[in-house]
Structure formats: structure tokens, C-alpha cells
Amino acid sequence: MKKYTLIASATMGLESVVKDECKELGFENVTTFNGRVEFDGNEEDIVKANLHLRCADRVFVKMGEFKALTFDNLFENIKRIPWENIITVDGEFPISWVSSVKCKLFSKSDIQRIVKKAIVERLRMAYQTDELVETGAQYRVKIQAHNDIFLIMLDTSGEGLHKRGYRNLINEAPMKETMAAALVLLSRWKGGDRAMLDPMCGTGTIAIEAAMIARNVAPGVNRNFASEKWSIIPENLWVDLRDEAFSKEDYDKEVKIYASDLDEGTIEIARLNAIRAGVDEEIEFKCMNFLELENMAEKGCLITNPPYGDRLLDDDAVERLYGLMGDIFMMRFPKWSYYIITSYENFEKSFGKKATKNRKLYNGGIKCHYYQYYGAR
């Protein structure tokens, strides 16, 4: 199999989580950069990364990286890339995404036009044809330029990896599945005799991702990817690695997950999402105010995404809510660990306790902190 440099793009703040995932999957030469993780891999690893990465946004093949100060530079560098090694003669190759920050070449439309022209010229020469019909598989090209350095990638995923396929119904201010999975992984909760609780669960994303992690359900196993139609990846590889993922699911481990929310309609959506994800038996959903919570186990892990920022603009209301959360959690769940994500800067003061640890994350583009309170071991 051929070796490639692969890229798992990641939300700012989650690069180290994605790096750990890549290492656990056995990928080699794993290196982190702002917003991405690079690693060496072959066609099998392209499939594995798409099926198994829980917190990455997409998986790309790195086609090139170079400095370009003029459009002639850009054209010649793009033309040198052996696109024919991946793109077939009938392949469709839209320049689907361009960013240019602090670069001499800043016109996105001109960059798109030049890159397209250079790839066309390269493929015409490689395939000795005047016409490229672009009716076959799709190979979306992404260009990311910063300080005149151009990073050129092909998108293997298609739709973002957060699109697991179970969440057709959402409420306002939904959290991406990739972020929800990261919150669970950062908590180190994996099921077993420790319970898990989300007392403000919304449509259930954190609870569902937790159940999938506990059961070792591969997040991409029930969806499709752009590279499934690429000729460089044998079709049986997708079948075999999906079968392998299914065979590693764990239905023997004890899993106790509790999720509640104030809104009855939202809880109903959460139940339906859990059914679609195949983890409805692992989660007990209830429509209730968090003030009514009762302790269901001596030790456990509470992970939640309470209202904040644009979701609840009144600072007084936020402070009251977080003060009540602190009182309820510490009084009724004294030995539990708490993991709470919010953009509210004075959270610890309102909550009434300084976090053991906090971590800066970006949830839906909003700068947040993930406050981590370690409970009894």
C-alpha cells in the first residue's frame, strides 16, 4: 500500500485529544499543529481514521505544502503535485474551500481559478487527454494559506465527521457530536461501575456519545464517506474494517447513564436520537428540573453543557443558575466528579468552588472553558 501524510482537522483546543486518538489507533509520526494533527498512513488508515476518530472534524490527504508569493509560483507548485496518483481521469475535483490569512495572495476566487487551472493541466498531461469530464468520484480540494505558506489537501470524509447519522432532530444551540465526544474523553469516563449524568442534556448528544464510547461503537460505522468511491481504496477494505469495528463493540460492560432536561419535547428528541444511535438501552432519560436531582450512585461523573453566552444573555440569570448548580451538585453528589463547559468568565465564583483544572475550548466558535472538578477516587 502507498504511504501518505494524512491530516485530521480539529477544533481549536482539541488537537491533543485527536492526537491521543490517532496514537491509540496505531498511526505513526503523529504531530500536532494549530487546528490539525498530521500522521503517516496508507489507504487502510484513511478508512480507519474516518470510521474511528471521534473528535476530528475531517480527514484529508496532504498533497503539498509550499511558499508562494506570486500566482505563477502557485500555479507551478500545484502543477508539480502528482494529482493523477489519486484523482482518476473522470474524477470531479472542485476547489471547495480556500482560506488566505496574512498572505500576498489574498483573493480567494483567483486562488481557486489558478489552482483549478494547474490541476487540469497536470491531469491532461498525465492522462494524455484534452477533455476531463469530471463525472466520476469527488475529490474536493482544500487550500489553507497562512503567512504565504500554502497547505494543499484532498478531503476523504465528505460531510464533517460530526455527522454520525443519528441526530436528524436538534434543538437550539446544539453541540457538535465531535465536541461532546471530546468532553467525555477528557473526563476519562468509560462506563463500568461509575455512573454518568448530564442534568441539562438537551437533545442528548453528550449522553449518546458517552454510551458509544462505553460500548466502543465506532462513530463513523453507520455513515458514508467521499473516499468510499475513490479507486485507490479497495471496496472490500471498507467492508472488512466496518465488520472489524462491529466485532469490537462491547455489550458486556455495565453502563449507567442518566440524562435529564426541563423541556419535554427536547427529551423526546433525545430519546429518538439515542434509538437511532442504537444506545437507547444504555441511557435513562427523564424530563425534570435539575433542582429535583437525587443521587443515584455513590461515585460518578457529571458532564454537562449548561446555558451560557448567546443561549442565556442575562448575567444575573446565569449567576443564579450556576450558584444553584454548585449547591445542588456539591450537596447531593459530594463524591462525584463534575465537568462543565461554559463561556461565562466568572463561572467558578458563581459555582462556589475553584476547578481542579480548566481547559480553553471553542464550542460553536464561542470561547469557553471546560471546568473539571475531580471527585473521590
Rank of each mutant, 00 (worst) to 15 (best):
K48D: 10
C55S: 14
E65A: 11
G91I: 00
E84Y: 14
L53F: 10
R80D: 14
N29H: 15
T88G: 14
I86Y: 03
E38W: 07
M63C: 08
K19N: 10
F27N: 07
F66C: 08
G26W: 13
C22P: 07
R54K: 07
V47W: 03
N29E: 15
E65Q: 13
V89R: 13
R58L: 02
E65H: 09
V18S: 07
I87D: 01
I46L: 05
E43P: 00
D40K: 14
A68M: 04
K23T: 14
A49G: 05
E21K: 08
L74F: 00
N73W: 03
E76W: 07
D40W: 13
N50D: 07
K48F: 05
V30W: 08
R80T: 12
D45Y: 09
E43N: 01
F93V: 03
V89A: 15
P82L: 08
V17L: 10
A68E: 01
R58F: 00
D90F: 11
W83Q: 02
K79L: 01
G64V: 04
K67L: 12
N34E: 12
V59D: 06
E38N: 09
G26C: 09
R36A: 15
F39R: 02
N73C: 11
E65L: 11
K79P: 02
E92F: 13
E28F: 13
V61P: 04
V18H: 05
R36L: 15
E43K: 01
K48A: 06
R58G: 01
E65K: 08
N29A: 14
M63Q: 02
G35F: 00
L25A: 10
D20E: 15
E24I: 13
L53K: 10
N77P: 07
A68W: 00
F39D: 05
T88H: 12
W83D: 02
I86W: 04
K79F: 05
T32R: 09
D57C: 11
E28A: 14
R54Y: 05
K67T: 12
F71Q: 13
I46W: 06
I87G: 02
K48L: 11
C55H: 10
G41T: 01
F75S: 05
F75H: 07
K62A: 06
I46R: 04
